[in-house]
Design a protein around this nucleic acid. Structure first.
Lengths: 351, 351
DNA sequence: CCACCATGATGTTGCGCATTATCGAACCGG
DNA sequence: CCGGTTCGATAATGCGCAACATCATGGTGG
């Protein structure tokens, strides 16, 4: 019935009670006895008993200081993690990350405090890199700070990016194979007889957009198509204007491909407003997931394997962490699954 | 251009380069200079410069061992955190927790590794209490292990529970005011003229259920109602059987209150199947949130302030962590908001 | 009867930091 | 010119554990 806030028992407490040395306790607790380091079973049992009776639990902090791993995987997002609007975007990644971490025996350290008063995030704030607590880090977010990344790597910090990043020097990342997936969408539309495909690329630059562009370009030359007046740069927030869509139709477009599903949905609305039937007269496809919750027809698009990407990232990271030698940075591309959807149909040949 | 995996710079490295002692570096980095401990601005600036040039980052592990705070808030769930089925349940709490943590300058440590091979979770597994890495912990989940909780508290570890828990001795928790909210639902139904209200309580015990039961009982006696043959214990997974519902109707029930919204929804189906019009002939209410995604009529129910609970828990915890003296354990009850919904209507008086 | 080895441990050191107790020099008034 | 006081720092210690080097004992073969 002590009122005093009991201190955590330590190995030396056990040692005293069991009549052995702290070293012995450490060895027993960690099961480090081997051919060269021998502790007889009875001593071991005794130590264990005392430990249990004291309610001993190892102090991970001390262990860590003494050179061990923390079994901590950092999760750093270049944007704020949980706000509702990012919900659907980040969540599947997190599910994967958590699953893999749990399977591999790691805990997750979610960095939130790196957010400055300006709302911007930086790993290095006031010269302090909070990521250090984690053994390694999974990094996600669009607005990557490349300088920080380079500095991190040069410091020898282990991390895996989710999403391809053009960074000077090698880094390991896992991404989705946007180029191929985009190619498949084009193939699908071409297979339906479309020859003039309007392409609504994302206005904000970034590797994922670039990959889609590359995939589109490749597919297009493969099929011998051209794009005069059929390419449009569109902001996700605004979508295309009715005027722009009209111009594309006037240019002979019979199908539309938009990077963002939001844009594709807006496109559907505009086309409906103009009396254009989808997929009867015109097809629409997106180069990303359609949001689940939104009602309406299922978009022709592809699914980004977010969950798998999360898992894979953690697996790669742990592999790096647990191997003795330095592991070469790796790039992993996971395939997207094509979704035929209901917004694309065969192009009725005219004339 | 060194290829050697550079060691992390430490305070002593800075000290050597800056021509001061490690102590000084520590003081400068932590801004601990005061009236009694003085470091002139120029020295401070110099130390900072050297630190930055070395890419110094503090080692939180060592700091922790030395007794400092890490600005880390643990998040421990007694069930697995991210699996899809718990998604809607945990997510709002996390949003609140993250928001408060970010606002207060804390990072989040999500414990996943406590999951045993049996799927069960225990804080103390294999003699390791990993929670110690965090300065304090927010704990959530239904299947609380009370023994662990008591032990944790006795060790002097700071934590805040989300959800009321009957634990020997005081703990601080934040919960929703289920009793009052339940009372309001009853009031609403009574106000609509219902006098015989069937009550479908949860089969699995637990404090939240008990609170609802208490609230129901109180409201009932307040209104002078009785419950002969109107109370039913129902498993969430199964819901009530058609036969049971028929019996309740036969017993004169004109309104139903179910703990779980899932059960309420199933009830609606059953009643529809029996040709009973809701809310025309019969009212249905739930004592929890209706899931957003599910189509159908909006349930009469109340909304549990999950986000606010998460925030509040973090705030309470931080308050404890940052105050000098021991703070008395506190219980906080947050109000639920009543949702009139579309599944309750006035009771047409018969005879 | 000593040299040698296997057994079963122990003493010491150090991880990187924060804290405590000091300490030297400069300054200042009497 | 000397005692006190402020200023600007520092050496030493310890947090709890793991790694390393070392040591005492007892049996065994030569």
């Amino acid at each position: 019935m002590k009122d005093a806030p009991r201190r955590r028992p330590r190995q030396s407490d056990i040692a005293k009670l069991a009549g052995v040395s702290q070293t012995t306790v450490s060895i027993v607790i960690n099961g480090r006895h081997s051919d060269t380091i021998r502790i007889p079973p009875e001593t071991r049992r005794h130590v264990f008993e005392v430990a249990r009776s004291l309610g001993y639990t190892i102090d991970p902090v001390a262990r860590s200081l003494a050179g061990g791993m923390n079994h901590l995987i950092g999760v750093y997002t270049f944007e704020s993690l949980f706000p509702m609007d990012h919900h659907d975007f980040y969540y599947p990644f997190l599910v994967g990350i958590e699953a893999a971490a749990e399977a591999l025996g790691y805990d997750l350290l979610m960095f939130t405090s790196a957010t400055g008063s300006d709302g911007g995030r930086s790993i290095y704030r006031e010269g302090v890199n909070r990521l250090g607590l984690a053994d390694g880090c999974v990094m996600l977010g669009k607005e990557t700070n490349r300088d920080d990344l380079v500095r991190l790597r040069d410091e020898g910090f282990r991390f895996v990016l989710i999403g391809r990043r053009d960074v000077p020097g090698p880094v390991t990342y896992v991404t989705a194979d946007y180029a191929n997936a985009t190619g498949k969408v084009v193939d699908h539309l071409v297979g339906l007889g479309h020859e003039r495909i309007a392409y609504l690329t994302a206005a904000d630059p970034g590797e994922p957009s670039a990959d889609r562009d590359a995939g589109f370009l490749a597919a297009q030359t493969r099929h011998g198509l051209d794009t005069d007046g059929l390419v449009l740069s569109v902001r996700k927030e605004e979508g295309p204007s009715a005027e722009q869509v009209r111009r594309l139709l006037a240019a002979g477009a019979t199908a539309f491909i938009a990077h963002e599903s939001v844009v594709a949905l807006r496109l559907l609305d505009l086309l409906a407003g103009m009396g254009v039937d989808v997929p009867g007269e015109c097809s629409v496809a997106a180069l990303s997931d359609a949001p689940d919750a939104v009602p309406g027809p299922e978009l022709t698009c592809f699914r980004i394997p977010r969950r798998e990407m999360g898992m894979r990232a953690v697996e790669l990271l742990v592999q790096q962490l647990e191997s003795e030698e330095e592991i070469e940075p790796r790039a992993v591309e996971l395939p997207c699954t094509f979704v035929a959807g209901q917004t694309s149909g065969s192009n009725r040949k005219e004339s």
